[in-house]
Amino acid sequence: MVYFSLRRHWIGRIRLALTLFGLPYTVCTAGFRPAISCSSNQPIRTGQTIRASSFSCCSRSSTSIWTMSLSAGLHLKSRCAQYPGSNIKRFPVPDDKVDWSEIWPQYDPVSYTAPSVEKKPEWADPDIDSFSPQFNTIDGAVDRTSFEGIYDVKEGKPLNPRGRTGVTGRGLLGRWGPNHAADPILTRWKVDANREKVHHSDSKRPILQFVSIKRKDCGEWAIPGGMVDPGEQVSLTLQREFSEEAMNSISASPEEKAEIHQRITNLFNSLGFQVYKGYVDDPRNTDNAWMETVAVNFHDETGNSVSELPLQAGDDAGQVQWVDVDSSFALYASHAHFLELVATERKAHW
């Protein structure tokens, strides 16, 4: 694995600015192959090290550009035997049959769209037969373009750019095709009683901590991200999702809301590090609907910004806390690798 780092290069700054203001630009695509674990219900204590399996992807930042030459990755969490939140069993897809170019007459995927999606909430598309979505473009206020480039459409339905998943329909996802999310990664340095950085005994590097939530839907630890609303700028999604899931600003008092809002705004107005932009190997993915995200790291270097605010879980999070970043604890979807890139950028322990 080779990384080509271009420190303080102006290209990275321009690309991050374009992304945060919702403007398109050409991005790379790369495959990744994470651990096959689809769920993790391991208990975690405050300050406990989070360990995550690593895999490879492509991303850009405001201070460096990370690139890799890889073939399309074989998504594994997208092929978990049982579809999350249901009793639906995926049609088994072996590694050599993932790619759509592989002729496979025996492929007989299960069709599944969750009842919550079939109820036609405002965040979901209608059934594919009742409207005519414009794929691979901005369709009204809905962005149906993919960070992966142009995806195929067969019999009126978009095809997952990473290949077969064993399930058709939308599953738990609202949109046909790409479902865009934003993942804000809030970090700080782990410090001792004298506010000195704590270094890991093995790597001798300072230890980062990040805000992690325990998802209610699957019990896995994750970055507090969420879906980009139609027409919403990614920068606003990043701030909104962190406020709602980690700070629970919706239920705070007016005075608390004002303080929380000001501190978060100040941090999110700082120049962040774009960690990743692309496809996410997510257990909710299907043949016709899949997750994509923009992950951005906002770092509280001095520890006197959001680090001082008490964390409080929002509606979508069971628990929320600062946890140590390490390299061997499984996290939700592709979040482990996002943290690996952050640790590399910050020269922190991994």
Rank of each mutant, 00 (worst) to 15 (best):
E102H: 07
I103M: 08
W104S: 12
P105H: 04
P105E: 03
P105I: 06
P105M: 04
Q106F: 06
Q106P: 00
Q106W: 05
Q106L: 13
Y107G: 04
Y107P: 02
D108L: 02
P109E: 05
P109F: 02
P109T: 00
V110R: 00
S111V: 08
S111E: 15
S111Q: 11
Y112T: 05
Y112S: 01
Y112K: 01
T113P: 03
A114C: 10
A114G: 05
P115T: 08
P115D: 12
S116W: 13
V117N: 01
E118Q: 11
E118P: 00
K119C: 14
K120R: 13
P121V: 07
P121H: 10
P121C: 06
P121G: 05
W123E: 09
W123C: 05
P126A: 14
P126F: 09
D127R: 01
I128N: 05
I128F: 05
I128L: 15
I128S: 11
S130F: 14
S130C: 07
S130P: 02
Q134A: 14
Q134V: 12
F135H: 02
F135Q: 02
N136S: 10
N136C: 13
N136L: 12
T137C: 11
T137I: 07
I138A: 08
I138T: 13
I138N: 08
G140T: 04
G140R: 03
A141R: 15
V142P: 01
D143G: 04
D143M: 03
R144M: 06
R144H: 02
R144G: 05
S146V: 09
S146I: 09
F147A: 15
E148G: 04
E148D: 13
G149F: 06
I150P: 02
I150F: 12
I150L: 12
Y151P: 02
D152Q: 15
D152Y: 09
V153N: 03
V153L: 07
K154D: 08
K154W: 05
K154H: 10
E155M: 03
E155Y: 01
G156K: 01
G156Q: 03
G156W: 03
G156M: 04
K157T: 05
K157S: 04
L159H: 06
L159Y: 04
L159G: 05
L159E: 06
N160C: 09
P161W: 12
P161L: 10
P161E: 13
R162E: 09
R162C: 10
G163R: 00
G163V: 13
G163H: 04
T165S: 11
G166F: 00
G166S: 08
V167D: 00
V167T: 01
V167Y: 00
V167S: 00
T168Q: 03
T168W: 01
T168D: 14
R170E: 13
R170F: 09
R170I: 11
R170S: 09
R170C: 08
G171H: 06
L173H: 12
G174T: 03
R175E: 09
R175G: 04
R175V: 05
W176L: 13
G177S: 07
P178C: 12
A181W: 11
A181M: 11
D183L: 14
D183F: 14
D183I: 12
P184N: 07
